[in-house]
Design a binder for these strands. Structure first.
Lengths: 364, 364
DNA sequence: CGAGTTAAGCAACACTGTTGGCAAAGCGCA
DNA sequence: TGCGCTTTGCCAACAGTGTTGCTTAACTCG
């Protein structure tokens, strides 16, 4: 089943072509303005002629269109190229025990359709839930524009889970789902090329305009506290998709008991403050943890999400930024931007769809 | 000067060739046994014929030799291939204010020569220190076997520094070195193709047999406490080479004052315990921090180094392993190996040389 | 209006890995 | 010993990549 081969892979001409095509698409996706062939050549290091050939293939595939002309810089003006958003779409699913969200994104990241529903994750049998999901996805896909290629389906779900195999791993309170081949069955039911299952926090980190460089951490404060790590632009999952256990760093070895068994976990401290209806204190603790994270991983950007964050949207960004500034030795050298996730409450579903788009457009 | 382009790079045929050659070399380097062409084909996903061509080029370059035959598996026995260790060498330098180490490694990682000397880092002018270093490197290179290509020079140094530009950034107590073009000048003085400057903790993480998969953290407890992170096999540096600030995670917001200004940093707690001549307590604190790290990044292996570790080599690995086992929810699922760095006190210098070898053999 | 400049395309090319066929070198059984 | 079978590795022809050298298109400037 292993779609993802961790092993180092040999590259051939087809891989070379796809790699360069993905590179060009990625650059066009990053800059809303679009770019010309010469610009792409400069950015990729390829010769202009090679870019011309690559762009020619992308034009033939309908992924890219010529969009007018730029200003002249003394000679023939540049022909601007732009991604054609309606050339493809991806489905993103936030799978939650209470309320699941299913949405469709086009290549530009615009939401074409969004529905929320209780899919019966906790009550129903896994097979039935997959069937219901498949039905909802089929409905959603019909919202895609004519000729839009469905690139795949992304599912964001609370962990633990295994990204490689696409299965949940001992999910709390859902014994029937342990090891259940969620991704595999979804793939079979849907007849869609690309089905991916990842942790909610991991995909939520993707639901923001891609930073050109550097690393981003998404902090999710809801029923629990977790993080999604985008290190040098790529999701860091770890060998067991276990990375991002941000909430269980011990910050007070003699602190309050946490559900995980330890004492003084960051999550326990935040939750205790929230139970006291004291988001200020929770935000300060979150900031201490964020500062630890920033120093450990040299993070450039922090995104905040989860319903506890949105309950006090003015409190958290400021408190977190303050703590980071206080703990960094040189805040002017490493300036960390802290903000709410732009996708708001849909961050997980949007990010799940973005994961698919990234994989399809950026993959080998 | 930017040798390292962070920007995504277009790939051409030369890049394809080098990539595949590096892949084959890496596999031969990883398995001491060596391997045959068919094995390499299976591991890389390339066709046997492609591997034959690649190996042919490597044989012509003298990087690889045919080393006997394997057992037959029912047909013609496999021709074993092995890396030729004496085909190349790399110089590794641990640059320290008290005692610097300069050594030469062959491709197999065997130390051919090692010298330690006070290079006068704190007292001398930077230019003079670079001159002295260049002289020592030239002497060391003469120890290389005839025909061995000198792949480059790696320098491991205490941070903060900038890997991209190869300069130190406001090193404590060494104002003359701030922004001094250490790498650039060394490169000019030495006439060696590849000079790299990296943090001591980062390179030390490389001074161990490469893990086939997963992530490694090297924890360095000496005058300070830092970490080197090998995430999915690659050093994670962050945009400012600032990652690895492991010692300044706050573990006790009302704890002892740290030199960094904060209170209750892990480093301050460890140092306080060591000042009380209590390595057991220091080791337990280190373990708490390590457990946080393992949960956050899904680490597979922990390596310990630094002279405080070697002062009590029996205490630390056990205490760290115990803390990790205690804090992990499923120790049997994520089993973390904890050990002393096999390179011992030479870990930084060995790792610096390994960084060069990795770059030369594995780079584009 | 012509010279200069920049953008993009055409044709020939060098080089990659791939495919199909074949020789070499062992094993196993009659 | 002889023969068939399997596995390994190489030779030759091939498809397809980016590269090079040159040409055409389109605009600015004097």
């Amino acid at each position: 089943m292993g779609r993802m081969e961790r092993r180092p892979a040999g590259a051939n001409l087809a891989g070379l072509r796809d790699h360069n095509a993905a590179l060009v698409l990625g650059l066009l996706r990053a800059s809303a303005e679009g770019g010309s062939r010469v610009q792409l050549a400069a950015q990729t290091g390829l010769t202009p002629q090679a870019v011309s050939k690559i762009v020619g293939r992308l034009l033939a595939d309908g992924l890219v269109v010529e969009a007018g002309r730029g200003e002249s810089t003394g000679g023939k003006p540049r022909t601007l190229l732009a991604l054609r958003p309606e050339a493809g779409c991806a489905v993103g699913i936030e799978l939650d025990r209470r309320r699941s969200t299913i949405l469709v994104l086009d290549l530009a990241g615009t939401t074409l359709r969004r529905r929320s529903v209780d899919i019966g994750l906790a009550s129903g049998e896994p097979e039935r839930v997959v069937g219901a999901l498949a039905k909802r996805v089929s409905q959603a896909v019909r919202a895609a524009p004519d000729g839009a290629k469905v690139l795949g389906v992304g599912v964001g779900c609370r962990g633990p889970l295994d990204y490689e195999t696409g299965t949940l791993h001992r999910p709390a309170g859902l014994p029937a789902w342990d090891g259940f081949p969620l991704r595999g069955l979804l793939e079979e039911s849907l007849d869609v090329p690309n089905v991916l299952l990842d942790k909610d926090t991991n995909v939520a980190a993707l639901a923001a305009p891609a930073a050109v460089s550097g690393s981003t951490a998404y902090l999710h404060l809801a029923d629990g506290l977790g993080a999604g790590l985008l290190l040098n632009g790529a999701v860091h999952r770890g060998a067991r998709t276990n990375a991002g256990e941000f909430g269980h760093q011990v910050l007070q070895p003699d602190g309050p008991q946490c559900t995980c068994g330890a004492r003084g976990c960051l999550e326990a401290l935040c939750m205790a403050a929230l139970a006291d209806d004291d988001p200020q204190t929770a935000a300060r603790w979150l900031g201490v943890g964020a500062a630890n994270l920033v120093r450990l991983l040299d993070i450039d950007r922090i995104l905040l999400g989860g319903h506890q964050i949105f309950a006090s949207p003015d409190v958290y960004p400021r408190a977190v930024a303050d703590q980071i500034a206080e703990h960094l030795p040189e805040p002017e050298w490493q300036s960390v931007r802290v903000s709410l996730t732009p996708a708001g409450a849909s961050a997980v579903a949007v990010g799940a769809a973005q994961l698919v788009i990234d994989s399809a457009l950026g993959g080998i």
